[in-house]
Design a protein around this nucleic acid. Structure first.
Length: 447
RNA sequence: UCCUCGGUAGCUCAAUCGGCAGAGCGGGCGGCUGUUAACCGCUAGGUUGUAGGUUCGAGUCCUACCCGAGGAGCCA
């Protein structure tokens, strides 16, 4: 047998005899000519069999092969502009085939379109489709780029607990689980508070793991289980935080463009809008954002849009507001200085303007909206204690958190980036449930 | 939790005014040497989400429920 290759490297094997191990994605037969579109986990390539070139029984076996059958195919690699695939433009002239298993002929995921419910019910098979395969390959690169940038910029990975004693921010609904004699433990919605402890040992840290929200959110931007990376930095104010974020996000986008161009092309993603992502990103205040949204609302003739864009200073933006705002920029945009009342208890107040705080969200362009939420944290122990009281949080649960402000407190900042929203934006897809292998939503825990 | 829309063959959908349950794809069989979700012919395939009601007759009308999607709130 010839060397087993990966389809993603097929361009290096033109003119050579190779073997691929994979699955039959589609079969088209035209009498004496058969096309098999085969995927091997690394890509999709067209394999061609001519009746006159092969033994009778080999050709018959190829003619009757079913979708998703597992195979080892040997043949000669050649360039052909007509050949579909990822990357396309190459095909293998079949000289030999070994069928590992003939798949059951009633494969449910036909190549025609499917409804959402059916696709999700068959997620374990849907993963094999080119679109899902491409999105999840981009996801893996995004995750790799996240770790790479942090690991090479002075950050150290510190895993924070998933089972936690109480609501970290006191607002979101959490999943609870019985925990021996300790009552209820809650699945983490953030590792931030623990990271605030970690920075005093390691200066720059990040946690990266699954995060859980029991909110009954039913939108294309929400999952009950999602992945979030949360860097936290000692001796860092809000301006320095924004510099970190724009470097970080630019690196992630660049890596995706470099390594996943065939996947992004197969998704039909116009990457020109991603090519221009580099620091700096524009910074606008919450006050300015409110004004910009009001201007858009003033100009629109559509009464429905006018209704949706109605907004009073003091609230948090909804999806229509974020879309109207981000359409004005071709790169991600920072919105800083949100009202203290709508943000978490630990955010540092704006000097001289206690009604707003040193928070910053990063909104992705093209209507994708918030991918990062972050802030400078309160470092003064007296103010922090006051906020805990104001928010009605149990003081004893935050005893350890308060102590961080007693022993060498420094200004510090951090943020959380949502992996699925970032992948949605980079891939240009509509719904974040496609950006995680097995999505968990309010109505679905299967498969 | 609220608002809107939907549920008919394995999948995607059609079925006029309440009047024989249909098509394409997918499966099987046959044909075709350049297909791109191929195409052509034949063929198999149905508890119309569930329960009740109106009617000579219900996929269609009424009531309740179940399930799903989109959005709002909340958030990354």
């Amino acid at each position: 047998m010839t060397a087993i290759i990966r389809i993603e490297q097929i361009s290096e094997y033109v003119g050579q005899e190779v073997t691929i191990q994979g699955w039959v994605y589609n079969r088209t037969h035209k009498g004496k000519l058969v096309f098999l579109l085969v995927r091997d986990g690394y890509g999709f390539v067209q394999c061609v069999a001519f009746k006159n070139d092969l033994p009778e029984e080999t050709f018959e076996e190829i003619v009757h092969i079913t979708q998703e059958s597992s195979v080892e195919i040997s043949g000669l690699v050649r360039v052909d502009g007509r050949a579909p695939g990822i990357p396309g433009g190459f095909e293998i002239g079949i000289t030999g085939i070994k069928v590992i298993q003939i798949a059951d002929e009633y494969y449910p995921m036909s190549l025609k379109e499917h409804g959402t419910d059916f696709a999700l019910e068959n997620r374990h098979l849907w993963l094999r489709m080119p679109s899902q395969w491409a999105i999840l390959r981009v996801r893996a690169t995004v995750i790799s780029a996240i770790r790479e940038w942090l690991d090479t910029n002075g950050f150290i990975n510190m895993d924070t607990p998933i089972l936690t004693p109480a609501a970290a921010e006191g607002t979101t609904t959490l999943f609870g689980t019985p925990y021996f004699d300790e009552g209820i433990a809650y699945l983490a919605q953030t590792g931030q508070l623990y990271n605030e402890a970690n920075i005093y040992a390691f200066k720059k840290v990040y946690c990266f793991g699954p995060t859980f929200r029991a909110e009954k959110s039913k939108t294309r931007r929400h999952l009950t289980e999602f992945w979030m990376v949360e860097p936290e930095v000692a001796f860092c104010d809000l301006d320095e935080l924004m510099e970190i974020e724009e470097q970080f996000v630019s690196h992630i986008v660049r890596r995706a463009l470099e390594e996943r161009a065939p996947e992004l092309a197969s998704l039909g993603r116009d990457t020109s809008s991603l090519e221009m992502i580099s620091p700096p990103f524009q910074r606008i205040s919450y006050d300015e954002a409110v004004e910009r949204i009001a201007e858009v609302r003033e100009k629109t003739a559509d009464p429905e849009e006018k209704e949706q864009l109605a907004f009073d200073w003091g609230g948090d933006f909804g999806a229509p507001h974020e879309i109207a705002l981000t359409r004005q920029f071709d790169k991600p945009v920072f919105v800083y200085g949100y009202p203290t009342a709508v943000k978490a208890f630990y955010m540092e107040p704006w000097p001289g303007r206690p009604e707003v705080c040193k928070s910053v969200d990063l909104l992705a362009p093209e209507g994708y909206g918030e991918i990062i939420g972050g802030s400078e944290r309160i470092s003064d122990p007296a103010l922090l204690l006051q906020r805990i009281h104001e928010h009605g949080l149990p003081e004893d649960a935050y005893k350890w958190y308060m102590e961080l402000r007693r022993f060498g407190s420094v200004p510090h900042s951090g943020f959380g980036l949502g992996v699925e929203r970032t992948v949605s934006w980079i891939c240009g897809i509509h719904h974040i449930r496609e950006t995680i292998p097995f999505p968990r939503t309010i109505n679905r825990v299967y498969p």
